[in-house]
Structure formats: C-alpha cells, structure tokens
C-alpha cells in the first residue's frame, strides 16, 4: 500500500462549479455532472453540457465502480503532500454506469490504495472515501475489487 498522503498540504478551494461535488464526497457519493436537457454525463464538472450547451444541470450519483483504463506509477513526488506517498499509482478509471448509447463515457482519476504490483489495465476497482484532517474535505481513493481476463500490465 502506498504511503500516506498529507492532505494538510493541499488546501482544496471549492467554487461555484464544484462545491456540490465536494459536499457529495462528504456523504460518500461519487457524483458526475449530468445535463437535465439531454441526459449527457461528464467529469470534471464543467459548467455546460458539451453535447447541447445546456447549463441546466444536475448531478448523477455513480455506483463508484469502474475499470482501470490506464495508469501511471509516480516515483518522484512533485507536491510535498506526496513525499511520503511515492511510489503510488494514479489510475484512470472508466466508470461502469456512465456509458451512453453514442459511445460517450466518463473516466475519472484517483490514487489507488493498491501497489504497482497489483495494478493492471482492465481490472475492476471501487471507490473508497478517505476522511482528511480537514473536516469538510473527503477524498475518493480507489481499490482493486476483483479479477478480469485480458488485463495488461507494464512490466519494464
């Protein structure tokens, strides 16, 4: 398991477009933006629908489950919050319940609770909400929750 992330070194500043999303994480909900006019879903929560331009929006509560589409293994810390964390895996996760009929989909990123040894593209993951020492900020992490066929792993 990667080392601790010192969230006290990153002060999150919610804004007009994001405040409700951060409130969602406090209630252990992984939200994505959804258009009230056409139903399209997306993330990060840009303030307009890129299919129909509507700004009449809601939130869709995902099940917080998905598949690893890609990943990186960070070995050199850039922010001091991650000095104790390296090496850690950032995964790009394709959410299971945001696929649309025209092929549109939603991917999100997050730090895995698993080590590099365990990670592979194609594996299923689920969200785990992590309380930080700032009472108002809860951070979603992800953990591998099963096996899959046709996985791919970087082995160099």
């Amino acid at each position: 398991m990667p080392g601790t992330i010192d969230y006290s070194r990153i002060t999150i500043v919610p804004d007009f477009d994001t405040a409700e999303w951060w409130m969602g994480t406090k209630q252990h909900k992984y939200l994505v933006r959804q258009c009230k006019s056409c139903g399209h879903k997306w993330f990060p929560p840009f303030p307009a629908c890129n299919k129909c331009t509507s700004m009449d929006l809601t939130w869709f509560e995902t099940a917080g489950k998905g598949v690893i589409h890609s990943y990186i293994v960070v070995t050199q810390p850039i922010l001091s919050a991650f000095i104790e964390t390296v090496p850690y895996v950032v995964a790009l996760i394709e959410l299971d319940d945001c696929h649309e009929t025209d092929g549109a989909l939603v991917r999100v990123a997050g730090v895995l609770l698993d080590d590099e040894e365990a990670v592979a593209m194609g594996l299923p993951v689920e969200v785990v909400f992590q309380q930080t020492n700032e009472p108002n900020i809860v951070i979603p992490r992800w953990k591998i929750c099963g096996t899959a066929e046709n996985t791919w792993k970087f082995v160099e």
């Binding site: 002060t11 919610p14 890609s70 990186i72 960070v74 850039i78 922010l79 919050a81 000095i83 950032v90």
Partner: peptide, 29 residues
C-alpha cells in the same frame, strides 16, 4: 517538491489525485 499549496479551479481535480504535471498527464496516455 511544492510546499503546502491551494487546489483551486481545475487543480481541484488533479492535485488530490497526485496527478499534477505534464509528465504525469501525458504519461497516462
């Protein structure tokens, strides 16, 4: 490494993922 910092705007959805630099973004691709 960057001293304690604020994650505002776009950075809200990159910093807490530890995914903040071009090497990390393009590395994903």
């Amino acid at each position: 490494p960057v001293p304690p910092t604020q994650a505002a705007g776009d950075q809200q959805f990159y910093m807490h993922w530890g995914w903040t630099t071009p090497a990390q973004w393009f590395g994903m691709s």
